[in-house]
Design a protein around this nucleic acid. Structure first.
Length: 1030
RNA sequence: GCUCGAGUGGUGGAAUUGGUAGACACGCUGGACUUAAAAUCCAGUGAGCAGUAAUGUUCGUGCGGGUUCAAGUCCCGCCUUGAGUACCA
């Protein structure tokens, strides 16, 4: 009986689906295990072989854990809101819902063919109203919450209101907007409802605010920071500009510290944790206030006006200890004080500079780091301790968006400040650099020379003490920092401060294909729709583009107003926003923005726990049982997006009692990308003598090896051209033109890998007759390895190969369906694992797949011969048991360590050994079938059932390793002389080192190596090695 | 610039607490079976040198040092490369 993978795989996939073999139970005596994949966005291109890599790994773990007696939750779904479906809708007018549904169908077909053990009954789709109903609900909870710094958690907004009613806001310690006005309880109670709502918006965890956003004109929407790569949009690469807009924001900054600390508790790769740490960007330092010097004492032309409300400049610094080194100050050009403190003399220069900076895009400013620019404002600030006058400059190296948008410049301790000071040295308003650093000499003494700032700033934190620093003299970095903050607090000029780079996340998108907000507006103030009327379903629109007056696409909807009396979505015609409350019919406009792509993916793992619950996103019981994800597998590109937002929402839901744990994903593995092996053909391009610049392409294509020879060998090139002419290959190369040819270069052109066989040979016939690609090559002449024109297979054309990212445009996409068809899903699964370590990027090479395919056939032949099942009940030999148990040990360890590639090797070794031993013994082959079932489930089921079992192999316990089968009595010792291995000797393991030495010294090969010498030293490590020295 | 990874045959990659470098595959070479091809099976395969051969011997895990009886593995200094991040005060 031969191994027919197609029949077997179809049969078992059907069996699993019909028997719901992999359905997880929400109550079980077994321990739980939750394995999750990052759910895919169902794009129109379908899956290529790179996509299933992580799914295969997680499936192996899921199946293995079931064998180990766990109740395993292994779900799958679709992140089905998103830009590509909408862009497609704009182009074709097709509803995104329709294309999304079609793409999902295609994805599902492809996934099913690979034999995953997903519990499909729990499937989720983020674009499904049954799902986004709960996304909307979570949004409402965020709106109804504030962050109490005293309890260090989110609380219901009602607790804040009751504090306001009793005490006003002076005692409140909350994460909120910066520009909060203080009020007393009686003031609060006297505010109008609208005033109160406006104040509460400044505290809510999701809030509406006029913010400067990243606006992408080409996409017609705003983007979050993590959706911008190198200053352009992640999708499509369009330019992004800064723009002020009223937007929903998420107060993720409230969780900055917990997001940072939580990283210590989870088992994620160091690189992802590091990315999140950088993104959060915690800096510990101090806020320091510098009085703006009274202009009368310094500069009579500066007027008094405005200085009463802005009588100091506040800076954030991580090095308050260097305060006596402050030589000047720099404000961002956008800083609000700039216009008020600038003197008349400097006014023109400052305004010109501010204007020039504003014109430059963020991207230009970022790209141009080396150019130093800035202007003196003419104003001076006062040093809090020395009372010296410090000139105030503006410069674009200071960013308005970080810290306070102002820095105290200490050139002797900071490279940028030093560069700035050095650049403007000697100009008006730039004093001599103050030096406060005394480096310690290697002997521990103090270097009192001034050298350390002559060449560059002394940016280290250790290895010096302070001088010229009043009460900080002689102190080191640590002591000085502590001391200076105490002193600053004493005189009210500053305080310790922790600053984070993490910004609040903009949550509005001007798109159609996203979750609608459960929000309507009364007098411009947002109102939440009561949760019991959810979902607010996405309305139908004529066009998916923004409206002509610049509203988001939902502005095209005609039924998009909220009837707050009957609680339903009604026609816009009923909405009369201009009417006063007395005559108002209770119909108000609904929010026109939709939520961003990350909304639906920030909580989906909890939905799988209880996917059909209509009342809650998941029941308390289900949440309590499944807790969080034990193993999460997905790409590292989500490091600062999805993975950060998910942790944020999870922490929020935990605070409010809706999520069971502080962290959503205990262990995270990032699978590496599978790269494509692009295929190239080389088109000959000739340059003529008359005009060397004029390159004329030809219809001639040469093999990779010929191309290389021509490039490296001038004589060969000449011969080649003569050959072309004499063989009369094309009209282009007659004797006449040949003389005019100056040389040859090549166009390296991608050719679709489907025309290339396992030996890199191009199938020219198929290529030329292909509907899509044939046209371009219709008249092409291919010259093969032996320099012959390929007509009827008398030569072969070998393509060039290069490793690139797998993509449609490079024609190097390998489709998993094709692999499953030709070699089977089990082969695909094994091969993807065999390619290399899961976390590493590696190229796909279909040629190598024959190795694992051959292995499965060999495995099959242990069970079957030409006449059918061929299994005996005889007692296996010790060797057979040893092969089996070595494998059990290795595979068990490998799965626990996520080292899947080495398991596949071990299976091959095992099957090779068993074949050698002619093993057809049930006592070996039964456990072997179970052992391999996580990796190659279809063949395992088939073998298991052929052995006479009724139930699915997935229900069987994993074989247990038993030491007794692998204990060795002998060891093949390597014998080294001065560390070089010379021969091996087989010795019993129970010998003492002395006995070993005796035997080894007596061996004639030892005597031959020593040639009469006596070793100085004999090293014997029992069970390991013998080394003779001297 | 900073942070985190990675450099091993023609290729993908193995190698436990330092202990026989190159497992397992691909590819290649030769052979068996076949009219032939495919499939399958067997043998060989890091490089150099010596030898008809068995075999012997030198070199060899990015580069240069070091520790050690012993280093792909540990330490110091570099180089290359991938990813992330970037005037963050």
């Amino acid at each position: 009986m031969k191994y027919f993978h197609n029949e077997i795989e179809a049969k078992w996939q059907k069996y699993w689906a019909e028997h719901k073999t992999f359905a997880a139970k929400n109550n079980s005596d077994k321990p739980k295990y939750y394995v999750l994949d990052m759910f895919p966005y169902p794009s129109g291109a379908g899956l290529h072989v790179g996509h299933p890599l992580g799914y295969i790994a997680s499936d192996i773990v899921a199946r293995y854990k079931r064998h180990q007696g766990f109740n395993v939750l292994h779900p799958q779904g679709y992140d089905s809101f998103g830009l590509p479906a909408e862009q497609y809708a704009i182009q074709t007018g097709q509803h995104p819902e329709k294309t999304t549904r079609e793409n999902i169908t295609r994805y599902r077909e492809q996934l099913d063919k690979i034999g995953f053990s997903f519990d499909w009954d729990r499937e989720v789709r983020t674009s499904n109203p049954d799902y986004y109903k709960h996304t909307q609900w979570i949004f409402i909870q965020l709106f109804n919450s504030w962050y109490n710094k005293n309890t260090d958690k989110a609380e219901n907004i009602t607790t804040l209101v009751s504090i306001f009613e009793k005490e006003g806001n002076n005692t409140v310690n909350a994460v909120c907007d910066d520009d909060i006005q203080n009020f007393s309880a009686s003031e609060w109670n006297s505010f109008s409802s609208e005033q109160q709502q406006r104040i509460l918006l400044q505290y809510r965890l999701t809030y509406l605010a006029e913010t400067e956003v990243n606006w992408c004109p080409a996409l017609g929407t705003v983007l979050a920071n993590d959706e911008i790569v190198n200053g352009v949009s992640e999708r499509g690469g369009h330019p992004v500009i800064r723009k002020k807009m009223t937007q929903w924001s998420m107060r993720i900054s409230a969780y900055a510290e917990r997001l940072l600390q939580g990283l210590e508790t989870i088992d994620w790769s160091e690189s992802i944790k590091e990315s999140q740490r950088n993104w959060i960007g915690k800096s510990v330092g101090a806020l320091v206030k510098f009085k703006v010097k009274s202009q009368k004492s310094k500069d009579s032309k500066l007027s008094d006006i405005g200085l009463s409300t802005f009588d100091y400049i506040e800076v954030f610094t991580t090095r308050p200890d260097t305060i006596f080194g402050v030589t000047f100050m720099t404000l961002a050009p956008e800083h609000e004080l700039v216009s008020q403190i600038t003197t008349l003399e400097q006014k023109a220069a400052v305004e010109a500079y501010v204007e020039a900076t504003a014109k430059r895009s963020e991207r230009e400013r970022m790209a141009d780091v080396k150019t130093i620019s800035g202007v003196f404002t003419g104003a001076y600030a006062e040093h809090p301790f020395t009372k010296e006058a410090i000139p105030v400059w503006i410069g674009d190296y200071v960013l308005a968006g970080y810290g306070t948008g102002a820095v105290m410049a200490v050139p002797c301790g900071d490279e940028r400040d030093y560069a700035f000071a050095n650049f403007f040295k000697g100009t008006h308003g730039m004093p001599e650099i103050k030096n406060i650093i005394s480096p310690l000499t290697p002997e521990g003494g103090i270097d009192t020379s001034d050298n350390c700032i002559k060449e560059e700033a002394f940016s280290k934190k250790d290895g010096f003490v302070f001088k010229n620093s009043d009460f900080l003299n002689g102190l080191d970095y640590k002591a000085a920092t502590k001391k200076v903050i105490e002193e600053l607090e004493k005189i009210g000029a500053g305080k310790a401060k922790v600053n984070y780079r993490l910004r609040d996340a903009v949550f509005s998108r001007q798109r159609y294909w996203g979750e609608p907000f459960p929000v309507y507006y009364v007098n411009g103030l947002p109102q939440m729709i009561d949760a019991k009327y959810l979902p607010i379903v996405l309305p139908e629109v004529e066009k998916y583009l923004p409206t002509e007056d610049g509203q988001p696409p939902l502005g095209n909807a005609t039924t998009w107003a909220w009837d707050s009396i009957n609680n339903k979505v009604v026609s816009n015609k009923l909405c009369h926003a201009e009417l006063d409350s007395a005559s108002h019919n209770g119909v108000f406009p609904l929010e026109l923005n939709t939520m961003p792509g990350w909304a639906g993916s920030s909580w989906y793992w909890m939905r799988y726990m209880d996917a059909h619950n209509e009342n809650e996103f998941a029941s308390a019981d289900a949440l309590k049982y499944w807790e969080n994800v034990d193993l999460y597998i997905g790409g590292s590109e989500h490091a600062t997006g999805h993975l950060l937002y998910s942790r944020f929402w999870n922490k929020f839901l935990k605070d409010r009692g809706f999520a069971p744990t502080e962290e959503p994903f205990k262990k995270l593995i990032n699978q590496g990308m599978i790269l494509g092996m692009s295929a190239f053909v080389y088109r000959v391009v000739i340059a003529t003598i008359e005009n060397k610049d004029f390159l004329k392409s030809s219809k001639i294509y040469v093999s990779k090896s010929i191309r290389d020879k021509i490039v490296h060998d001038k004589t060969y090139e000449k011969n080649f051209l003569v050959g072309l002419a004499t063989d009369n290959i094309t009209k282009e190369f007659d004797e006449n033109t040949l003389n005019k040819i100056a040389g040859v270069i090549f166009n390296d052109l991608h050719v679709n890998v489907k025309f290339v066989n396992l030996s890199d040979e191009l199938n020219i016939y198929e290529l030329k007759s292909d509907n899509e690609f044939g046209k371009e090559f219709k008249d092409a002449v291919f010259i093969g390895e032996n320099k012959q024109i390929i007509i009827n297979g008398n030569d072969v054309y070998k393509v060039g190969r290069e490793v690139e990212k797998m993509s449609k445009s490079k024609y190097n996409v390998v489709n998993p369906d094709d692999i499953c068809e030709e070699y089977g899903a089990d082969t695909l699964r094994l091969y993807e694992m065999f390619l290399g370590p899961l976390e590493q990027a590696k190229p796909w090479n279909t040629a190598g797949i024959t190795g694992v395919y051959g292995f499965l056939k060999k495995l099959w032949r242990l069970y079957f011969d030409d006449n059918g099942l061929h299994v005996t009940n005889d007692e296996p030999t010790a060797e057979m048991y040893k092969s089996l148990h070595k494998t059990i040990k290795k595979v068990t360890e490998d799965i626990e360590n996520f080292s899947f590639n080495t398991s596949v090797s071990q299976f091959m070794i095992c099957v090779n050994e068993l074949a050698q031993q002619k093993c057809h013994h049930r006592a070996i082959l039964e456990p072997l079938a179970v052992l391999i079932s996580p990796y190659a489930p279809h063949i395992a089921e088939e073998l298991w059932s052929a052995l006479g079992h009724e139930s699915s192999v997935s229900t069987i316990s994993f074989p247990k390793f038993e030491e007794k089968y692998v204990v060795e009595s002998e060891k093949e010792y390597p014998v080294s002389f001065n560390g070089k291995m010379r021969f091996t000797i087989k010795l019993p393991l129970d010998l003492t080192p002395a006995q070993i030495e005796e035997i080894v010294m007596a061996d004639e090969r030892t005597q031959q190596q020593l040639q009469g010498r006596t070793p100085n030293k004999v090293i014997i490590v029992p069970g390991k090695i013998i080394n003779l020295v001297g």
